[in-house]
């Protein structure tokens, strides 16, 4: 088909969106509704996953130096950790000196008698390290063990917890894909139903085109452009709705949580994924429109 013809047919499709206002509106509402639901579900999942990932990053590698470590060995460890931070392997770390360890122990034990005879010299220096990537923990710990100042028996990392969180994130990822797939199928069915009505109303037209000698693509193309435009409009409308609804829900939840004194359960800001949601909406909307058109026209082409 020539470019000139494609342009002509595209124009035709665009004009048809307007000429068949009512059906266009009906299709658009269908797309908007499904994308809106899709958007909210995705936002919830993104929130949960982000929270979990943050939780994962909060897990710390804790280790202590040997009590009898020399000054040189202490410095070696300090330099190692600093290097790790400089290269980005470690995002942050806390250092606990012998004195602090002594004080903390005193606080924790409460009974003075238990601390009798102990001085800061009996305590080890500790490091509580947050890794940039929790999955690097094994490698990091292996390196630690090579340092003679580190007490290898006291390196701890909540590996189980990490694995549990990872598993949950994995499940949520599956759920996200599943929900996406189901909603996609539902929307295609809904939209193709609506477009089928449009096409049915215009089957006479299709028939005439066939009798005059139009080939399938000549007839199909305008409908596909039409579906694409309707999908795009539906996507934009649903984006607006989703952003409004999300902000509304977020504010509502914040108010609710703060009234019961929970402050760390904030939803993320919408801006953080606005672009992503917009792109997903547009891709889905247009795909649904195109597939719907394609499927519905197909039936009437056999004349």
């Amino acid at each position: 088909m020539k470019i000139r013809t494609l342009r002509l047919l595209a124009k035709e499709g665009a004009a048809n969106v307007y000429k068949n206002k009512l059906m266009s509106a009906a299709s658009m509402v269908t797309i908007t509704t499904t994308l809106f639901i899709l958007g909210l579900v995705l936002l919830i999942i993104v929130n949960v996953i982000t929270k979990l990932e943050a939780q994962k990053r909060n897990l710390q590698v804790r280790f202590y130096l040997r009590v009898e470590a020399t000054r040189l060995e202490q410095e070696e460890v300090a330099i190692f950790i600093e290097n790790c931070r400089a290269t980005g392997v470690v995002t942050a770390y806390e250092y606990e000196s012998r004195e602090q360890a002594y004080e903390n122990a005193k606080k924790d034990l409460k009974h003075e008698s238990l601390m009798e005879g102990l001085t800061p010299e009996n305590f080890a220096e500790g490091y509580f390290v947050t890794l940039a990537n929790p999955n690097d923990s094994d490698q990091f710990i292996a390196k630690l063990k090579l340092l003679s100042g580190v007490d290898t028996q006291w390196i701890t990392y909540p590996k189980q917890e990490l694995e549990r969180i990872s598993a949950i994130v994995g499940v949520f990822n599956y759920v996200a894909v599943f929900v996406l797939a189901v909603l996609m199928i539902i929307s295609v069915l809904l939209i193709s139903n609506t477009i089928r009505l449009t096409v049915f109303a215009r089957r006479k037209e299709i028939e005439i085109m066939k009798y005059v000698g139009a080939n399938d693509w000549f007839i199909r193309f305008p409908f596909i452009i039409e579906g694409m435009i309707i999908g795009l409009l539906g996507a934009l409308l649903s984006f607006l709705l989703t952003s409004q609804a999300y902000v509304w829900i977020k504010n509502g939840l914040t108010a609710l949580f703060s009234s019961i004194k929970i402050t760390d359960l904030q939803l993320m800001e919408f801006d953080q994924f606005a672009i992503r949601i917009l792109v997903v909406n547009i891709i889905f909307g247009m795909t649904i429109g195109v597939i719907g058109s394609f499927m519905s026209v197909k039936k009437h082409l056999d004349v």
């Binding site: 006479k204 005439i208 009798y211």
Partner: peptide
């Protein structure tokens, strides 16, 4: 060229556009 009893013109196109349509099909 085909002529039908019930005309079969595209209702949302003018007379000119209906005739032109047959030519657009053959590009």
């Amino acid at each position: 060229g085909v002529v039908f009893q019930d005309f079969r013109l595209l209702p949302n196109k003018t007379a000119y556009e209906n005739v032109a349509f047959a030519m657009q099909i053959v590009e």
